[in-house]
Each structure stands twice: as structure tokens, then as C-alpha cells.
């Protein structure tokens, strides 16, 4: 565990906490894409199947369980408790266009052709694009609440910090996983436009509003 990875994990955790707090405090999930949240739940459940087969550390197990459980709680809040506030009309991204290619790619390009490894690879590919429905929703409504922007910034930073972690591990431990690195690059690049708007607008106290 190096500092980049720890900061990445913490950033990921902070993102989830911000999202849950936003929904809970405002009693509303307006502006949040339920489709992205479903994709994240699929990502965690398929990636962390190794909870049953491999033990890495208490930290590792704890975080995996937190990610799986909070993603399920989020889906419950959006589709049951605060369903009335959910932005159905704007959340129209077709997630099968992300799930199916990720699955096909995972079947073709993986480290090992076993069920658990293909599902791990699928989750890595799917995670890299899982934010697209959310970004699509923001672009459709043309704006995002500050709290949603903070959530997106923390969530986007997490894989960016992982990239630094992989550079570090390459030099310090001679360890690298090309699948994770390429997917992590794609994932971070997808956030670049948002990062720019976040730094130039939200951090200066303005609302995140897209140019008309």
C-alpha cells in the first residue's frame, strides 16, 4: 500500500459518503443517474467475487464489503425510498450499450480464461465507462448541483490517483497490470472535461453549468 493508492481509496470512499449524504440530507436523488449507480453495483459485485476465494487483508475485505453494500443501499434509496425525486426523464442512457461490449471485450482480452477472472476483467472494463450515464444526465439537464459536482470530482480523482499508484508500483515493485492501467486511463480521461469545469467554475463558487 502506497500513498497514492490509499488516497485513491479514500477518495472513492469520500465520493460514496458524499452521494449518500446528499440523498439522505436533501431527501432527494435529483441529478443522480440511477443507471450509473446500477453499473457501479454490477462492477463491485462482479469484481469482488474473490472475497470467496482470496484473502488479501482485513482492509481489503472491509473496503470491498463497504463498496458492495453502499452501492446496493444507493440503488434502494433511489428506486424505493426517494423514488419520487429520481430524474427518470433525463436518465435515458442505454446501459446495455456499455454492459455488452464490456462483456465481449472481457471474454476476448483477459489475463486468464476462468469465470472469476473474466468477471474481474469485465468489471474493470465496465467501471471505466460506468460514469457515462451520469455525465449524460448532467449534459442533458445542462447543470449539476455543487454537491453532485463534489461527488463526481471525488469519484473521478480515485482512478486518477490509482494511475499514480500504478506508476509507483511499476518502478518500486516491478508490478503492473495492463488491463487495469489502460481501463484506468480511459476512465480518468472521461472525467477530464468535468474536471476542467469543476476547477474553473465550482471551486470559484459558481454552479456547474454547461455552455448552452
Amino acid at each position: 500500500m502506497n500513498i497514492f493508492r490509499l488516497l485513491g481509496d479514500l477518495s472513492h470512499l469520500v465520493a460514496i459518503i458524499i452521494l449518500l449524504l446528499k440523498i439522505w440530507k436533501t431527501r432527494s436523488c435529483a441529478g443522480i443517474s440511477g443507471k450509473s449507480q446500477i453499473l457501479f453495483a454490477i462492477v463491485y459485485t462482479t469484481r469482488y467475487l474473490d472475497l470467496f476465494t482470496t484473502y488479501v487483508s482485513t482492509y481489503n475485505t472491509f473496503m470491498k464489503l463497504v463498496f458492495i453494500m453502499t452501492s446496493i443501499v444507493t440503488i434502494f434509496l433511489m428506486n424505493a425510498k426517494f423514488k419520487a425525486t429520481y430524474d427518470h426523464n433525463h436518465d435515458t442512457f442505454r446501459i446495455e450499450f456499455l454492459i455488452l461490449p464490456a462483456l465481449v471485450l472481457a471474454l476476448l482480452i483477459n489475463n486468464e480464461f476462468t469465470i472469476i477472472e473474466v468477471l474481474w476483467t469485465f468489471s474493470i472494463y465496465l467501471e471505466s465507462v460506468a460514469i457515462l450515464p451520469q455525465l449524460f444526465l448532467v449534459s442533458k439537464t445542462g447543470e449539476a448541483e455543487s454537491i453532485t459536482s463534489h461527488y463526481l470530482f471525488a469519484l473521478g480523482s480515485y482512478r486518477g490517483l490509482y494511475l499514480l499508484n500504478w506508476v509507483y508500483r511499476y518502478y518500486a515493485e516491478d508490478h503492473y497490470d495492463l488491463i487495469a492501467i489502460v481501463a484506468g486511463l480511459v476512465q480518468t480521461i472521461l472525467y477530464c472535461d468535468f474536471f476542467y469545469l469543476y476547477i474553473t467554475k465550482v471551486l470559484k463558487g459558481k454552479k456547474l453549468q454547461l455552455p448552452a
Binding site: R5, D9, H12, R47, D50, T54, V56, N60, M63, K64, F67, N111, E112, E117, W120, Y162, N165, D174, H175, Y176, D177, A180
Partner: peptide, 10 residues
């Protein structure tokens, strides 16, 4: 890089 597929990251 060893070809073990244990993933120690999240």
C-alpha cells in the same frame, strides 16, 4: 511480472 491473477487492489 508474475502470471498470478490475485488482485490485491480495489
Amino acid at each position: 511480472q508474475t502470471l498470478e491473477t490475485t488482485h490485491d487492489e480495489l
